[in-house]
Design a protein around this nucleic acid. Structure first.
Lengths: 242, 242
DNA sequence: CGAATAGTGTCTTTCAGACATTATGCC
DNA sequence: GGCATAATGTCTGAAAGACACTATTCG
């Protein structure tokens, strides 16, 4: 049994955290990617990858702390929507050895991001890429394509029945703007009337006064009642509320 | 940057896998727990814990392999429903150092389990415990209470709109038996008519001939069309199918 | 025949989808 | 007034919840 061996004798896998950071820019869902460094011994040199890296047992009190640190480092955003996605681990995903990564996914408004023009030391650059138009002919490093795919599926699935897209907008926002976020993520139009009814009934919005938004008629502005958590819309198999 | 340090110099967290194994026995949802060993340096000696342990980089090709190995070891079951639950990691969850665990949850029919009467070497015993009546006054080891809680929430939530409870039954089973599984997990009665309609419409069942089941009238037996995956019932915000 | 369980039918309410209509502000 | 967008109203069909009813087997 593993437990009966001395702790120090146990061979420990490499432990990393990767973050799938989504935003919407120019009407498209985009993901933040960084380029792998070129140094000796570096795996996948020059390839695009999800931002992430080793857990630093001195800096990070927890996995989520680690994810937040990497997110802050790359985007300057300190409190986006952040959710654990899952973990991927095995002997062959990293040429340097048995490794396990803890993947998170984050949503943030494009306007809140301050990308560093260039990461001085390593020359690595972070860039937004439309999820439907990743750099062609250049597969992502490690198993990051699979992780990104899972993140996309999770996002699209949850958008069907949660308030997640609200975290893609700066506050305050209007209902038509929010509807657009849903449409962009889902990749299909959403009926206005039904959308409004459901969004308002879900009770995650608070009015914050009318907004000028560049269109003829001003619209009501809204804020999230609780930026800390997403709201789930009612599901099936549940007893009717009222 | 962590990446610029030599790989060998990076302090690696302990890496474990834990499995929350559910079954239904005696009309109750139960979870399999093991007792922590008593040896020197062992954390939480004697406490109940989720089955799990260190990843063995020699034995395990992947995290899921590791979970399956532990599951087979404890229950003798080789292909239950198995799903990743999430990961928990931090500096203080294990007194032996910074550690990260990858948690899985499994569903299996009670009848398929062969618990070893006792694990010879360590004297550890595995036992079923009703989730509503864990050993009183004895908190679970590590953060396993939190992991179990998360597993329960995930299970109860998914039961609302998936075929998960079917994995708690040996095949073939009848619709009334399946309905009972839903009711046990959800903790409330479910309407027979509606249940039958939805379950059959979801299309994850295949008829397999009538069964004697100890009740006056025989019932139709069913098997799962695909034991490899759960089926999701239709959700909201989606275009009508027909 | 009665008891017990399996399985079906019916009614009603809710609600999402589709689409039409009204409201408001700017040119 | 005309236009563009915001917001609301109306109709319909699908489906879930509730509950009544029929069917089959055993004693």
């Amino acid at each position: 049994m593993t437990e009966s061996r001395a702790i120090s004798a146990i061979e420990r896998p490499l432990t990393t955290v990767d973050v799938v950071i989504f935003t919407v820019r120019g009407g498209q869902l985009q993901v933040l990617l960084v380029q792998r460094p070129d140094g000796p011994g570096e795996p996948f040199p020059g390839a695009w990858a999800l931002p992430g890296g080793f857990v630093d047992v001195r800096l990070d009190d927890s996995l989520e702390d680690c994810a937040r640190r990497k997110l802050l480092d790359k985007t300057g955003v300190s409190s986006p929507y952040l959710e654990q996605l899952g973990s991927w681990g095995g002997k062959s995903r990293d040429p340097r050895g048995w490794s396990a990564t803890h993947a998170y996914f984050a949503l943030l408004p494009f306007e809140s991001v301050q990308l560093k023009p260039e990461d001085g030391k390593t020359g690595k650059t972070a860039q937004w890429h439309p999820v439907n138009a990743l750099p062609p002919g250049q597969p992502l490093a490690f198993d990051h394509a699979e992780i990104l795919q899972t993140a996309l599926e999770r996002l699209r699935s949850k958008v069907e029945y949660t308030s997640l897209p609200a975290f893609l907008l700066p506050e305050p926002f209007t209902l038509p703007q929010l509807q657009k976020m849903y449409e962009i993520v889902l990749g299909r139009p959403v009926d206005k009337s039904g959308f409004r009814t459901r969004a308002l009934a879900a009770g995650f919005l608070v009015e914050s006064g009318a907004m000028e938004v560049g269109s003829p008629r001003p619209a009501m502005g809204y804020r999230l009642k609780d930026r800390g958590a997403a709201v789930y819309f009612p599901r099936t198999f549940s007893p009717r509320s009222s």
